[in-house]
Simulated assay, not measured.
Amino acid sequence: MNICVFLSAAELDERYTAPAREFAELIGKGGHTLVWGGSNVGLMKVVADGVQDNGGRLVGVSVEFLGDKARVNADEMVMAADLAERKAQLLARSDAIVIMVGGTGTLDEATEILELKKHGLHTKPVVLLNTAGFYDGLKQQFQRMEDEGFLPLPLADLVFFAEDGVGALAYLEEAVGIQ
C-alpha cells in the first residue's frame, strides 16, 4: 500500500518522535511505501528513516523552493512547481492518507484532503493520528460540525481518529482490503 503521510518538518521532542518512529517501523515492516513531502529534516526525516530502515520504499514529493531539504536517497523524488501541485501529486500517488502532528502546512493539507473526500473527489481512507492528544481539539470541532449539520456525510465516513500507529495501520489495511 502507498501511504501518504502529511506531517511536520519541525524538530520535535520525544513525545512526538517516538510514536512517529514506531509508526514508520510498522509501515516499513509491512512492506508498504511512504509517500511524503520529501523533506529530510525534522519529523519528516524521522519517519522516512524509520520506513527505509525497516524495508519500506520512499516516494517523496518535494517542491522547488524546498529542494535543498529534499532527501537524496529516496527511491523516487518528484519536484513539484508549487504547494498545490505537491498536494495533488501526493494524493494521486497514494492509496491511503495519514495525517500526523504538524503546523499550518499539515493542517492545510488535512483540510484539503478532507474537503476533496467530502465532495467525492477521492474515496481513500484518511486517518488523523492523534499522537499525545494533539488533535483532540480538532476532533471536538469535527464532532460539532457533524452534530450541527455542517457535514454532508457522517464524520466516520470522512476520517478515522487513531490514538496510535498500530490502530492507524490496522484501519488502513482493512479499509483497502489487505489481510
Rank of each mutant, 00 (worst) to 15 (best):
V59I: 15
Y171L: 13
A162N: 04
I99D: 01
A132P: 09
G102L: 00
L91Q: 01
S39C: 12
V159D: 00
V51M: 04
A74M: 06
R57D: 14
G120A: 13
D157V: 13
E76Q: 15
K45P: 08
Q140H: 15
D108M: 02
Y135V: 05
E173K: 15
M100W: 03
A80W: 01
A20N: 02
K124G: 07
E22H: 13
P154W: 06
N130M: 10
H122Y: 06
V127W: 04
A81I: 11
G67M: 07
M77W: 04
G60A: 01
V127H: 06
F160S: 08
D157W: 11
G105I: 04
L83V: 11
E22D: 10
G103K: 01
E109H: 00
S62I: 10
M79Q: 08
L43I: 06
V35Q: 05
A170Y: 09
W36R: 02
K29N: 10
G177E: 11
W36A: 09
S62D: 08
L172Y: 07
A80P: 00
F160T: 12
G120I: 10
E146T: 09
M1E: 09
R93F: 05
V63F: 00
V46G: 01
E112C: 02
G60R: 02
P152D: 14
V41R: 10
A9D: 03
V63I: 08
G30V: 10
N73A: 09
Y135E: 04
E64Y: 10
R15A: 12
F6M: 05
D68T: 12
G67C: 05
H119I: 08
L151S: 06
T131Q: 10
L128Y: 12
L151K: 05
S39V: 00
D53M: 14
Q141L: 15
L116G: 03
A18C: 03
I27L: 14
G55Y: 11
L91M: 08
D95Y: 11
Y171N: 13
A170Q: 15
I97L: 13
V176K: 07
T33R: 08
Y135G: 06
T131W: 05
E115R: 13
V41L: 11
I27G: 01
R144T: 14
G103W: 03
I99R: 03
D95I: 10
L121I: 07
L114A: 07
Q143C: 11
V166P: 00
D108E: 14
G102K: 01
G67F: 05
D49M: 07
L90R: 00
D157A: 15
G42M: 04
L43Q: 03
F6W: 05
R93D: 08
G167K: 12
M77S: 07
S62C: 14
V72S: 15
T123F: 10
Q89D: 09
P154F: 09
E64D: 12
M44E: 01
R15E: 11
H122L: 07
M79D: 00
D68A: 12
L43A: 04
L121F: 15
T131H: 05
E22S: 14
A162K: 03
R21D: 07
L121H: 12
L91R: 02
S8D: 00
L91H: 02
L12A: 06
Y171C: 13
E112T: 00
K29R: 15
R21G: 06
E22Y: 08
V41M: 07
N54D: 04
V176E: 12
E64Q: 14
L7N: 07
V63L: 02
V35G: 03
L107Y: 08
L114G: 05
